[in-house]
Design a protein around this nucleic acid. Structure first.
Lengths: 179, 179
DNA sequence: TTAATAATGTCAGCCATATTGACGTATTTG
DNA sequence: CAAATACGTCAATATGGCTGACATTATTAA
């Protein structure tokens, strides 16, 4: 038992030393967030490489897949990059047939973004390891504890960005009392 | 109540629609992790800019601060980059007096890394917003729920990287039955 | 003791992704 | 019609990754 390798040992090892060490949780989150995210993004990075794509391409595929009909402006807001940066990867994805642009119905200046079938296939391929990773990390977690985790992640977001995150990621703004 | 802006509303809004939607948690983690991390790293990025430093410099400062006497090889393993990439930013930090190198005692080929006082000051400045962010996100979370969150983050790490994470980040390998 | 290996540094070049600033075009809106 | 908006694009620049090659010093094995 030289190293901690699972959640149970992890929890035991921590509770053993939980005598008034208040800021400890804070530094632990700091550290673990780095390692978690590093490994989390390494999955699609490796798979993208043969396609000549990078992390930026995956991010675009992901958000367009999750929000079909997204506008370019929405995507800029989500990714927090400049239109020049986005423009390059978007152009590549469109040229190679992974993303399709349709003029907006209400406003024809807009280019609504959709994944083509091959775009959807590529996206699934890219993020299946990420979903597997998350499923594994959640598999023994109760629904209540899952809510704790989600709520923590949500609260790590800038408060002014939470409405966008809720809308784009959770699709839960305007609950409008349905039911 | 048009948008969800705090943990309570978040939890309520979710539990209202928790009717057999199993994979929902998984996609929510996927989305929230992106937004959380995006905002999390934006803090030091802004503060670093005036110094001419980037995210890479901060990462080095952070891990050296947290593990004084770290070797270059350790740092390469943690950051998962090549020595050439690390070399550049490390050289800048050493040249500008933020990091000090001392030959290893056991093995004098090693250059043990330490923060100078100004390195410590800069690091504190860079990551105080991150600590504030984490503290805010944890403030109303019970110790048990904090353990749930930490254990989730830990399990998101590649299993082969968990020993390193535990050692470097949590300093909890080899519990060697103390107590 | 010599030879192999290890820890680190460095040079040179390449690539992906980001930036700012300026300008162009189509479309909507006041 | 004029102004603002949504989007695209050209150009220049910076950061931070990468590969490959080679050098230095110190340790370890033959």
């Amino acid at each position: 038992m030289a190293d901690i390798i699972n959640a149970v040992e992890f929890a035991e090892s921590r509770s053993a030393s939980s005598d008034g060490d208040e800021g400890r949780d804070v530094t632990d989150v700091m550290e673990l967030l780095f390692f978690s995210y590093r490994d989390f993004v390494s999955d699609p990075d490796e798979i993208s490489a043969p396609y000549g794509f990078g992390r930026a391409h995956h991010r675009v595929l992901h958000f367009v897949n999750f929000n079909p009909g997204l506008t370019v402006a929405d995507l800029l807001d989500i990714l927090q990059v400049t239109k020049q940066s986005l423009g390059r990867v978007l152009k590549e994805l469109v040229d190679l047939g992974f993303i399709e642009q349709k003029p907006g119905l209400r406003d024809r200046r807009q280019r609504l973004l959709f994944l083509t079938p091959s775009g959807k296939a590529l996206n699934s391929k890219l993020e299946s390891p990420q979903y597997r990773r998350i499923r594994r990390a959640l598999e023994d977690v109760s629904p209540e504890n899952r809510a704790t985790i989600l709520s923590f992640l949500f609260n790590m977001i800038d408060s002014e960005h939470r409405p966008t995150a809720a809308r784009v990621a959770l699709k839960q703004d305007m609950p409008e009392k349905k039911r």
